[in-house]
């Protein structure tokens, strides 16, 4: 397993895993990075290097778990990153999926019913995902931010009461892939279908990573803070 370090050149990181590109963008990093190291860039952008490394390494390796650094990260930094990720989903990924599916349906030659069903299912999935994300944005993150900024604890909740199930949403995404890969009659433009499936698979990976950051980093830190504040 490869672990990126602060003295690695950022260009090396991208060559190793180009799927990290959107992750870098979430931190406001743009290309044209010359031979700057991870640390150089983070200093320039005023990002905590440790946090940045933890994020790209958890993205790169599912099993990576920065136990030591875990409690040094600021929950504000984490929620900021998670919100940026949500924005990326709504502004980039979902519109791209919408567009590809629309094109896929338009390319269909006969079995309109099958693709129509897939479309209905996709819309249902999107609706659930949106609800889930809105819940985090409107309830969970504000709770965490309030806890940090005001050291105030809303006696009605702890972070555990917000623990939400990611699994239902993940399940549907996987079902969507399986329906297309295994059961849909392939009378459509296959290049468009490939693009759709590839985008969907990358999205799935990104969502898994996102859930890992919430469950394994944000959640334990918040619990720690709650404990300190006497919960």
């Amino acid at each position: 397993m490869e672990i990126f370090k602060k003295n690695d050149k950022l260009s090396f990181v991208i060559h190793r895993n180009y799927h990290l590109l959107p992750v870098l963008n979430r931190f406001g990093i743009k290309l044209g990075i010359k031979d700057k190291t991870v640390d150089d860039i983070c200093r320039e952008m005023k990002i905590s290097t440790g946090f940045f490394l933890a994020i790209i390494n958890t993205y790169n390796n599912e099993e990576y778990f920065p136990r030591e650094e875990l409690l040094t990260f600021s929950p504000l930094e984490i929620t900021h990153y998670l919100k940026k990720t949500h924005q990326y989903y709504f502004l980039v990924v979902i519109p791209r999926l919408d567009d590809l599916l629309e094109k896929l349906i338009a390319s269909n030659t006969s079995d309109f019913k099958g693709l129509k069903m897939v479309d209905v299912f996709y819309k249902k999935y999107k609706e659930e995902l949106t609800q889930h994300i809105n819940y985090e944005e409107e309830r969970v993150f504000p709770y965490v931010i309030n806890l940090i900024k005001n050291k105030k604890i809303d006696p009605r909740y702890t972070i555990r009461s917000f623990e939400t199930e990611h699994s239902n949403v993940d399940e549907k995404l996987n079902d969507l892939k399986n329906l297309i890969i295994k059961y849909l009659t392939p009378d459509y433009d296959e290049n468009i279908c490939n693009d759709f499936l590839i985008t969907l698979s990358l999205f799935e990976k990104d969502l898994e990573d996102h859930a890992r950051i919430e469950d394994k980093i944000l959640m334990p830190i918040t619990i720690e803070i709650e404990n300190k504040e006497g919960r």
């Binding site: 069903m117 209905v120 399940e171 549907k172 079902d175 329906l179």
Partner: peptide
Amino acid sequence: IKSISGLTVYAIL
């Protein structure tokens, strides 16, 4: 396929 709505699509297909 795990979700109920996914199974419904399967049944229709």
